[in-house]
């Protein structure tokens, strides 16, 4: 706990995190530490609590007990300061959740201008850089509906990066995409990981996990049943449940 303070402690630390929806315990005493620069993939059957865990980490979902620390700081019960924490955590959603009434560039510059007080010109300049980085430099004046799913998700990544987050959360970022668009999104995420971004990715893309992540975490029924580097994971010495699941999603 003491070492969690200071720049060398873990960026994210969950201790004994429990969360229920009604009688359904979705997260059961989760302990997890994620260091700066780590890329972690979280897998598990649907309904196992993966997405809920991500939503708890940036305070979109309140937890019942335990504690979550970000940069050494507890995020529960801090009132309006949670807004400042969230601005340091980028989130990418399964359904993209771009703002449909705004152009691509306005989607990206909204938070820098309105939350962080960046000037419009500076935010736009940076927004164009980000669009370049995610590989769609010529779409800034389009509205989301004019883009393919893969392009929309890359805009969503650019939007999340625009606030200069210390941590990126990806909630099944490719699950709503047609197969031919999955690659383009995963490529952007791989580049991000290589640039040293700390990221937690909920996904079933085991190829991505094997290639990119430092740790693969397997959650089942609200409990972490495996937490290992991907090479060990795929040798599968651990839980039978995880092994069975990985076999299923690799070979389907």
């Amino acid at each position: 706990m003491e070492e969690s303070k200071g720049p060398n402690g873990p960026l994210v630390e969950l201790s004994g995190v429990t969360k229920s929806f009604g009688d359904n315990v979705v997260l059961n005493e989760i302990d997890l530490r994620i260091g700066r620069g780590e890329a972690v993939v979280v897998a598990g059957p649907s309904g196992s609590g993966k997405s809920t865990m991500l939503r708890c980490i940036n305070g979109l979902e309140p937890i019942d007990s335990g504690s979550i620390r970000f940069g050494g700081r507890a995020i529960e019960g801090i009132g309006r300061e949670i807004y400042g924490i969230r601005a340091q955590i980028g989130m990418v959603f399964q359904q993209f959740n771009l703002f449909p009434h705004m152009t691509v560039i306005d989607n990206i510059t909204l938070a820098p201008v309105r939350v962080q007080g960046t000037s419009v010109e500076e935010a736009r300049r940076r927004g164009r850089e980000l669009l370049e980085r995610v590989g769609i430099p010529d779409k800034e004046d389009d509205v989301p509906a004019d883009l393919s799913g893969g392009q929309q998700q890359r805009v969503a990544i650019a939007r999340a990066l625009a606030v200069d987050p210390k941590l990126m959360l990806f909630d099944e970022p490719t699950s709503a995409l047609d197969p031919e668009m999955i690659r383009e999104v995963l490529d952007v995420m791989r580049d991000l990981a290589r640039d040293g971004m700390t990221m937690i990715v909920v996904t079933h893309e085991m190829g991505f996990a094997r290639e990119v992540c430092d740790r693969l975490i397997f959650i089942d029924e609200g409990v972490i049943v495996e937490d290992a580097p991907p090479e060990e994971f795929f040798k599968a010495t651990g839980s039978a449940r995880a092994k069975e699941f990985v076999d299923k999603i690799i070979h389907h």
Binding site: R86, F93, N97, L98, F99, A111, L169
Partner: peptide, 11 residues
């Protein structure tokens, strides 16, 4: 989802 997205950006 729109509210989630806005909140996650710090609004």
């Amino acid at each position: 989802g729109q509210i989630d997205a806005a909140l996650s950006l710090g609004f």
